[in-house]
Amino acid sequence: MIDRLEKEVDVLNRHLEVFVLVWQAEPIGIVKLSNRTGLPHHKIRYSLRVLEEEDIIEPCPTGAMTTDHAQQFVETLNNELTAVIDTLGGLKISESEEIQSA
């Protein structure tokens, strides 16, 4: 169960890494993103597709560019991540709740 969560966090981290590079170097194409991140092209393509579905980047003839919604995404990202972290912190089992083996 935790393995799946760790994989999802890794994928989210990759999407954010790709987003930041687009934000900093727009327009930027798949080859440059792959070279800068060391990630294979298919993973870059997937991240770009997810970011496009979220309407924070868009394709253009010379690569990917951020949209007008990117600034709002950046402004709210830390608060949203903090809320998720708080939720995950609440999932811990305290020592008094640990299951005793029979």
Rank of each mutant, 00 (worst) to 15 (best):
M1L: 09
M1E: 12
R4N: 14
R4L: 13
L5A: 12
L5C: 05
K7S: 14
K7D: 12
V9L: 14
V11C: 08
V11E: 15
V11S: 11
N13I: 02
N13R: 07
N13G: 04
H15L: 02
L16W: 06
V18N: 06
F19C: 06
V20H: 15
V20L: 13
L21S: 08
L21H: 13
L21A: 06
V22F: 07
W23D: 12
W23E: 11
A25G: 11
A25I: 00
E26Y: 10
P27C: 02
G29H: 03
G29Q: 03
V31K: 07
L33Q: 08
N35Y: 10
N35I: 00
R36K: 14
T37Q: 02
T37L: 01
T37K: 00
G38A: 00
L39Y: 03
P40Y: 02
H41C: 00
K43S: 13
R45T: 07
Y46W: 12
S47W: 04
R49F: 15
V50D: 07
L51A: 01
E53Y: 07
E53G: 01
E54Q: 14
D55Q: 10
P59E: 01
P61T: 05
P61V: 05
M65F: 06
M65D: 04
M65C: 05
D68P: 10
H69F: 07
H69T: 06
Q71E: 11
Q71S: 09
Q72Y: 11
V74P: 03
V74C: 07
E75R: 10
E75I: 00
T76D: 15
L77W: 09
N78L: 13
N78D: 04
E80D: 11
E80T: 05
L81F: 15
T82F: 15
V84H: 13
L88T: 10
G89F: 08
G89Q: 03
G89L: 11
G90M: 07
E98K: 13
E98S: 08
E98L: 09
Q100F: 09
A102K: 15
